[in-house]
Amino acid sequence: MAMNSCVTVVQLGSGTQVHQSEVHLLPCDIEHDGAAQVAEFFTPTVKERKHEKTVSFRGRGLKGQEVTHPQGYTGLVLKEVQKPSSDQEDRVVKVSSVFHNFTYWNLETPPTSDDRVMMSMAWPKLAEMMRAPVED
């Protein structure tokens, strides 16, 4: 493990408005990184019936639920600005977009508070409490 590749700088834009993303967490491993016609194929086919979102992907039925982030937290999509040419260089990422909620999709079953990702949302609040300095 190259020691210097352990630093990743987050370049913060100078006050420019960051784009808000539409974000979905799918219940499958899609072997792809890059462009996809989400707005053409996926978004228009999402149906909302009685608090339940349904859609299908590759012929499989999905059920979804909106997940809102804990208060004081924002969703960020970080993107590498450019791959470092050597191990000696720091990696640089930028905030490419933000999101305030996302849709969590389960295969066939409606998401519940017992789904791991829903449970994981309890972490930030607990972390804050554990971080809080103790009184003398």
């Binding site: 219940p27 499958c28 491993d29 899609i30 072997e31 792809h32 996809a36 016609q37 194929f41 996926f42 086919t45 299908s56 992907f57 590759r58 012929g59 499989r60 295969l107």
Partner: peptide, 29 residues
Amino acid sequence: VFGYPQFVRFSWSTAQTLLDSKAVPVHWD
């Protein structure tokens, strides 16, 4: 990525075979 519009029956082997050879692999649990 998406394969086909919902007009297509994904469960037909014709569709599956085409997807297996031309679309990105997708894995389910």
